[in-house]
Design a protein around this nucleic acid. Structure first.
Length: 594
RNA sequence: GCAUUCGUAGCUCAAUUGGAUAGAGCACCUGACUACGGAUCAGGAGGUUUGGGGUUCGAAUCCCUACGAGUGCACCA
């Protein structure tokens, strides 16, 4: 039985019995820790209807509950706050339920599906810190939605065509000397990124030269020979010129190999990958459809527009005057395509907040076109990641590379372990050690990026990101390892962790722990409703911190009362499992030993 | 200029969506180990929630205003 639901219903009954009226929704909040009790009911909102003082109402409801509710053991009233204590017997039932329910925290199937599109990289340079926030977010939200009972399709749209790829291709053609990832000893994505930078340098030099000759900067940017060559290359690609297409295929293949390696490392995968080279032509039929329906209009130069001023937006171009697509055209097409492929009830895009406006427009157009799925479209917008020195700028070389960063956090975990583990890892093989350090390094990094509200801009501090004290991934991973150690010892000494828990009395900190455990499904639901991994991160930390307090205050294995010993073991095991599940929702693994 | 997001301890972030004396971590200071794992725990110090108005029993949260910062306003993606 869910204590919170039971308590809500009991309070409803109390209000009915005492005041002969009902409230639509009883809202409970956790009691602040300086007061006794675990649930608090706020009575201010009832004062007008009942014409009584808040404290008086609290007293009345509290007394009624202690007499009539099977789960309430006591109460106190502070101003308009009714703080309620729950009987130990009820908490024991809760613990027994959780301990024997393997799917605790997995909500009932909803028979609804969601597509989550994330990552969506360009193939002209390797992934960086910003992509990591995107990937971790998309991956975690997918896991959270799954736990909420949705069928989830993870999708990735690879931006593998366009001017930016041609830049790398051209530079490779000019300076490449048939270099390969093998001959260069570089991951493919890094190799192509190198040529992208080379292009940019050469291009800049040409611009400067032209400006030096008196050409205005804007004109120089368009007329630089390299830019003209890039555009020629793009035309050749679009015409299917064999040589150009062959080069493009080769370079992209290298990039994919590099991306795949990174995805494997961070534990991210996709159910469906779309390539823009296949989808960029889509959307033109939709433009036709819109014209026929009178939603779009054609200007004299034959470009096509939509007027969204009624929605508080602007007029927006959906097709160029030469009949070619813009970004919006493609997105109209791929949105339809994704729906035709999977018929999901919702489509979510994990894309940075600089595109907020674009998605407002996209969704407005889909509504105007009368798409049945339009209300299920959602832009999961996230803030940029800043460095302590300011914004990341590729031009100034301040971009933090994803592979480098993972390498650094892994090394930091390794050197920290040398000091902290003190021989606990002696029996680990080198491979096991490497895997552990990777787990800790990635745990630190993922937790660091996911604990912050994703909508907000955040600052990335390299030193803090590899920290393993305080509110960090490794702190939580440590608690899991600690619990497993206790459980191993219990098994060695033949103490059982199975069976029903039954003790006379619980310590306050034990109540607190069970209370936190019982809140887990609700947190999963809230995180799903708000697409918010940060809720889960905060929960995992709260649970871990409370467990450490419990661990410090009460002994488990040294407890002489066998019923208490058993209860604490079951509690520890349940906490360990819940930590593992919660961290799993963040895409973070937890170790048996560390 | 127009639109939009934001401003909380020295720093990085919370605050159950309008509830109690605004909480954590880092950094700083003080305690607790021949240990069920100290990668831990307990305590201290640190705040006019950017400033100023308003709404009400009650505001970091809602409204107005000033200041400061980010992003968007391409026939780029």
């Amino acid at each position: 039985m869910d204590i919170q639901e039971q308590l809500k219903s009991d309070i409803q009954q109390a209000i009915q019995a005492l005041f002969n009226t009902t409230v639509d929704d009883v809202v409970l909040q956790p009691t602040k820790k300086e007061f006794e009790g675990l649930y608090t009911f706020v009575t201010f909102s009832l004062t007008k209807a009942l014409r009584q003082a808040p404290a008086q109402i609290g007293q009345a409801i509290g007394s009624w509950l202690t007499e009539n509710s099977t789960i309430v053991s006591g109460f106190n009233v502070v101003q308009g706050f009714l703080n309620i204590s729950i009987a130990d017997a009820a908490w024991l039932n809760v613990l027994n339920d959780i301990a024997t329910n393997p799917s605790f925290g997995n909500l009932a199937a909803k028979n609804q599906s969601v597509m989550v599109e994330f990552s969506s990289p360009n193939t002209n340079k390797p992934l960086h810190l910003g992509h990591l926030r995107n990937n971790f977010l998309g991956d975690s939200v997918s896991r959270i939605l799954k736990a909420n009972g949705y069928d989830v399709v993870k999708a990735c749209i690879v931006n593998d065509r366009g001017v930016h790829i041609c830049k790398s291709m051209l530079a490779y053609k000019m300076f490449g000397n048939n270099e390969t990832p093998e001959s260069a000893g570089m991951k493919g994505d890094h190799l192509i990124g190198k040529y992208y930078v080379l292009f940019d340098k050469a291009y800049k030099a040409q611009i400067e030269e032209l400006v030096g000759q008196g050409t205005p900067k804007e004109e120089a940017e368009k007329k630089a020979p390299l830019m003209l060559e890039v555009q020629q290359m793009l035309r050749l690609w679009e015409q299917g010129d064999p040589e150009t297409v062959a080069l493009w295929s080769q370079l992209n293949a290298w990039v994919y190999e590099g991306f795949d390696a990174t995805y494997r490392t961070i534990g991210v995968s996709f159910d469906k990958t779309y390539y823009e080279s296949n989808t960029y032509i889509l959307g033109k039929e939709i433009v036709e459809e819109g014209l026929q329906k009178g939603i779009f209009y054609r200007k004299d130069d034959s470009s096509v527009w939509i007027d969204l001023t009624e929605e508080g937006l602007d007029q927006k171009l959906v097709l160029r005057s030469d009949g070619t697509s813009v970004y919006m055209t493609q997105d109209l097409g791929t949105t339809d395509l994704k729906y035709e492929d999977f018929h999901t009830n919702r489509q979510i895009w994990v894309v940075g907040n600089e595109q907020d406006y674009h998605f407002k427009v996209l969704f407005a157009i889909m509504r105007r076109l009368g798409r049945s799925y339009a209300d299920g479209l959602y832009h999961l917008s996230y803030g940029m990641v800043d460095l302590p020195t300011g914004k990341m700028k590729s031009r100034e070389g301040t971009v933090v590379d994803a592979d480098d960063l993972i390498q650094e956090t892994t090394e930091a975990a390794a050197s920290a372990a040398d000091e902290a583990a003190k021989g606990k890892l002696d029996e680990f093989s080198e491979t096991e050690k490497t895997a552990l350090f990777r787990m800790l390094g990635l745990g630190a990094l993922k937790y660091y990026l996911l604990k912050v509200d994703s909508q907000k801009r955040m600052q990335f501090n390299p030193a803090e990101s590899v920290d393993l004290h305080g509110n960090t991934g490794p702190y939580i991973q440590y608690v899991h390892a600690r619990i497993q150690s206790v459980l191993r010892k219990a098994a060695d000494t033949g103490v059982s962790v199975e069976g029903q828990v039954s003790v006379e009395q619980l310590d306050e900190i034990e109540q607190q722990l069970i209370f936190l455990l019982s809140q887990y499904p609700q947190r999963v639901q809230e995180a799903g409703d708000d697409y918010a991994p940060s809720y889960i991160a905060q929960y995992a930390y709260d649970l871990s911190k409370t467990f450490n307090q419990f661990y410090d205050k009460l002994s488990i294995l040294k407890e002489t009362d066998s019923a208490k010993l058993h209860a604490r073991l079951v509690l520890a095991k349940s906490v360990g499992e819940t930590i593992r599940k919660a961290m799993g929702l963040l895409g973070i693994d937890v170790p048996e030993k560390m």
